[in-house]
Design a protein around this nucleic acid. Structure first.
Lengths: 359, 359
DNA sequence: CTTAAATATGGTACCGTTCCCACATTTTAT
DNA sequence: ATAAAATGTGGGAACGGTACCATATTTAAG
């Protein structure tokens, strides 16, 4: 492997060119200690002319800080994560940190041998690169398996580098958790649909075995059982994507009769709406679709999706701030995002509230 | 700033604990040179027990390689970039490189003083962090201003670190360019709409002053002038987002009479479709909307968007591979993405081709 | 049995910074 | 005038690795 060695300018060159010692150059770089105005100006001139910038590598080796954070996530193309990344990047930047992005593309619960597990690999990268802290978004931690190699590696890593995880809290994990009000959001959307008078409500999407999905489903079942004759055929879990809504809705309607469906998120909802449209059914006239998790753009769909704003982005801010707190030795609490809001749009029809909540 | 010093394990500790010299430990880490089986096993045991991983920082200082690439982009939340990032991440990972993500959030042509320019700042970060190479996606380079501070800094950086830019080629820039077939895509969609018989065609979206937009508009005008009575009121430039389609379509229809519109991308198209829907117009019955740039999900919209697959993701792969080639001292060419394809869906109505292309 | 080659191991300079320390010079206080 | 404090400057160790070199031991070859 032939490397075209491009000569980097170092502090020594600056020292030589300006006739000062490296110590003095270092002093002007860091604006610390005493430097005479003459020397300072001479050095600054050389720095400007040579386009010199001190190597963060060398600095890091000494300071043991890289001014870098890592973000690990299972799938960049998932819009749920985009807002999060954006927020994390923004807040990190504000604190002077650069971001390393690791996309594990882990498909979920399907486990492979620990050595090749991309999520374990991500943890190793974090350790090797000596980032100052890491934010892990969902992924393996969201699945039921809890005494895995992954969790061990994670706890081990957390001893060296502070790790904040954006996911529902897991007992055996020592990292800081930042989580959403899963139940509240689900409650809001189900109550809304109930209040509109619908009593044959289905649940569509989400991956079985994933904590968030299971919790939301539990909340859904709890509520639906209170107010309707619950039928376990009214639930279909598959995944979080458009196609899961698209294929799922047909399957769901084949196995039971429904006049309302709660989708796990707006994309699943869109997929369902699209399929229903193709089947000649109108949303919300023939069937009503609500979603439990707002994604960008869904206010532009036809019909626009009635959904829950989970304020996901606020999680990003909280996560980074927890990390910064941890750098400063400040304590932190298990944090939750802002309280979810019901966002009423078209896919559930007009808000009527004429029906009181009762069976 | 109180840092909780978490003691990192170093090669010296491993050396001490295993009773071997650091040289020997280094040899087993790199699987180079001679090491007896006994010592190797002893060392490996210690490494395993201590969870030791060599510091990339220290390694980089010596090797002058960080095994890291930087990606700079103007807006992570723009879905156009997402696929690109995903691809860049994937290919980089395959070559053993980690990604640094820099989101400049530069709003476009509006320039600020060079010092605070986030894009210039991004270049500085790249230099400081000593990444092995950088991929810059659009941003400032896409605008007309060409003898800017930014361009100078960019060329200067490119002398030290290879930079690949995903954008239309700019003369005064020495970096490697990877670009799309801008004109071909526009030609395909306009020809398609013409072939369906429409002769009152508008152009919607895209930021004025941005190279891609100007080139596409030029191509659009060329074609439309050939086959129709061109009216310069049929063009409205604003930006690339949903709201630009949403607000723009109404404005456009107020200033001239149209039966077809080419949107700069699928989001602008969706915005337009949504607004038309609210205005009581049906797409494609009352007016036809085509798009020049495919974004994810637009096949699920109602109506689904007839558009151009620019194979944007292939740009990511090409970009990283150019970088790798450059590391190896291999030559490279100004590269272009795969050839664009017309994707016929619903928003332009059925494909008829009954109308021959003629005025 | 001698010598060369292969194997095995540790010492040390170096990568680009920072920072402590020593020393020199100037300024201020007494 | 003299001590003390403030200012200015450079030398060199350290950060955690790598790799070249020297040296020691074993194995193979003649």
């Amino acid at each position: 492997m032939l490397i075209t060695k491009k000569h980097d300018i170092t502090i020594k060159e600056i020292s030589k060119l300006s006739g000062a010692s490296t110590s003095t150059v270092s002093r002007v770089l860091n604006e610390s200690g005493y430097v005479s105005t003459e020397k300072r100006q001479a050095i600054e001139k050389v720095i400007r002319e040579t386009n010199y910038r001190p190597s963060m590598i060398a600095r890091s080796l000494h300071s043991k800080q890289t001014k870098t954070l890592a973000v690990v996530l299972p799938d960049v193309s998932n819009p749920y994560f985009i807002g999060l990344i954006e927020e994390i990047e923004h807040v990190s930047e504000g604190y002077g940190y650069t971001l390393i992005l690791i996309n594990t593309m882990s498909t979920g619960a399907d486990k492979m041998n620990a050595v090749d597990d991309p999520e374990v690999k991500a943890l190793h990268t974090i350790q090797e690169k000596h980032v100052d802290g890491a934010v892990i978004i969902g992924g393996e931690i969201d699945h039921v398996n809890v005494d895995s190699q992954y969790l061990k590696t994670l706890n081990e890593l957390n001893k060296q580098i502070p790790v904040v995880i954006i996911a529902q809290k897991v007992e055996n994990c020592d990292c800081i958790f930042v989580q959403r009000h899963i139940n509240t959001g689900m409650r809001l959307i189900v109550q809304h649909i109930l209040s509109l008078g619908y009593r044959k409500i289905g649940f569509l999407g989400g991956k079985p075995g994933v904590r968030v999905t299971e919790q939301r489903l539990a909340e859904f079942e709890k509520l639906v059982k209170m107010y309707t004759d619950y039928d376990d055929k009214s639930v279909l879990l598959n995944d979080y994507y458009l196609k899961d809504g698209y294929q799922g809705i047909e399957k769901l309607l084949n196995q039971t009769d429904l006049n309302a469906v709660v989708a796990i998120n707006d994309r699943v909802a869109l997929g369902a709406v699209r399929r229903l449209h193709e089947m000649g059914m109108n949303v919300p006239k023939d069937i009503v679709i609500g979603s439990a998790d707002q994604f960008p753009d869904s206010d532009y769909y036809i019909p626009s999706i009635t959904t829950i704003n989970q304020h996901n982005n606020s999680l990003g801010k909280i996560a980074v701030e927890q990390l910064i707190r941890s750098f400063n030795g400040q304590p932190f609490l298990t944090a939750e995002s802002e309280f979810p809001d019901l966002v009423i749009r078209e896919s559930c029809g007009e808000k009527k509230y004429s029906n009181v909540l009762k069976k």
